[in-house]
Design a binder for these strands. Structure first.
Ligand code: MN
Ligand code: MN
Ligand code: MN
Ligand code: MN
Lengths: 221, 221
DNA sequence: TACAATTTTTAGATGAGTCTAAAAATATTT
DNA sequence: AAATATTTTTAGACTCATCTAAAAATTGTA
């Protein structure tokens, strides 16, 4: 397959992410926001990506990835998440440090390297933030999960992912000792500020703000 | 420290390599050859690198790296060779496959990553081709070595490196079962074509061509 | 439906890195 | 030393990715 520039690859990822969030064509402005660039630059790039058959693009109508573009974007996400696992599992970085390095590593071109890395890591299905790692064919493992904020008192489950990937949030979770795999039960929910009291085990209890509870993914028991 | 483009980094490596080969300023043409580009493009880039304080450059006089340029080039070589070790030791690639991937990986920007990788690999002093890996301060381990072609009959030693890094040569060495660490002794040298007969152990003998003997580094016993 | 607000595209410019062709400087021969 | 060959630089053009400002299209509202 042809090679594309890192910039082109980053646009594909941005479009993928936006299409994933909402199931409709990504707008020029939304892409500009995601890429931290001007709408004019985006329009330029969209023309080029369409030219190369990576996106469906009609002026003023927004864009969607083509089969080819989707394959490429999925491959990038696969590489990004595998490298994150490597950095955490093998090089012992913490989950708030791995993203920036993976942003660079995802652009390394070598199908064989990705395959070997995957094998070396034991073919992980999820990355350090709980996001699914697509397999070589591009298939994501689906997992039934809900926001912690959607749980009712008495319901319990295990923390399986984060919605907010910012180092600030991840470091906060470290501080309050919440990590992937932690089991919890909703003890009480306060209507006043929509915060919740959770039980970790039988004795350890904590109150989480609305904001925190909206950024944690839980798999219910 | 500032960041430089991959292109700029590759020019620095090329200049480093040329200055290493011969201890005099690298010429525009030599750099063009090393970079597979035109002399005109090189002149352009030299102006820019000089502007950034990475090289000493006088028109028509060739170039040498500044302290700053040398530090950067050494850092790139460190990263390149560490990644080669990783690819071979951890991902089980062969020594003829690792270079091209390392050419990409050497541009990943993250001092902390290099440090962790070095530690993870056990702070190796040499890469899969026997080339020394500079430490974090930029110091290369020096090793007394000679070309196999410089050995006389009766002399013995161990294979510690290759001069030719091409996959073709490395694969040929695999085929005749010569790898780093192999011990050998010169049994006979033929003046006719400057080939040599070597003994690997007491019974296994082989004849190596002049070309092969000029591309193997030996550490004498 | 018409006017206003927002979004998107176009136009024109810039810098990095590249090219070819031509001019200038340096090195080699005779 | 002069002529010739080689190397290096300059000049001008191209692509990619970006910008700002202005024009055009779409969407929202009165
Ligand atoms: Mn990430
Ligand atoms: Mn992640
Ligand atoms: Mn190499
Ligand atoms: Mn090497």
């Amino acid at each position: 397959m042809e090679n594309f520039s890192q910039t082109e690859e980053n646009y594909l990822k941005a479009i993928f992410k936006l299409s994933e969030r909402e199931d409709k064509p990504a707008s020029t402005n939304a892409i500009a926001g995601e890429m931290s660039t001007s709408a004019a630059s985006v329009t330029d790039m969209l023309r080029r990506l369409a030219e190369k058959g990576l996106i469906h693009y009609e002026k003023y109508r927004g864009v969607a990835l083509t089969e080819k573009g989707n394959k490429l974007a999925t491959g990038l996400i696969r590489k990004h998440r595998l490298w994150e696992v490597f950095l955490l599992e093998k090089l012992r970085f913490s989950w708030d440090e791995v993203h920036d390095m993976a942003e660079q590593l995802e652009h390394i071109q070598s199908p064989e390297l990705v395959e070997r890395l995957d094998e070396y890591l034991g073919r992980p299905k999820f990355d350090p933030h709980g996001d699914p790692i697509p397999d070589a064919a591009g298939n994501f493992t689906f997992r039934k999960q809900v926001f912690l904020s959607a749980l009712n008192p008495g319901e319990a489950g295990v923390v399986v992912g984060v919605n907010d990937h910012s180092p600030a949030f991840l470091q906060y979770l470290d501080r309050i000792e919440i990590k992937l795999g932690v089991q919890l039960r909703i003890a009480e929910r306060f209507d006043y500020d929509e915060s919740v009291r959770i039980m970790l085990g039988e004795t350890n209890e904590q109150v989480l703000s609305k904001k925190v509870s909206q950024n944690l993914f839980i798999q219910k028991f």
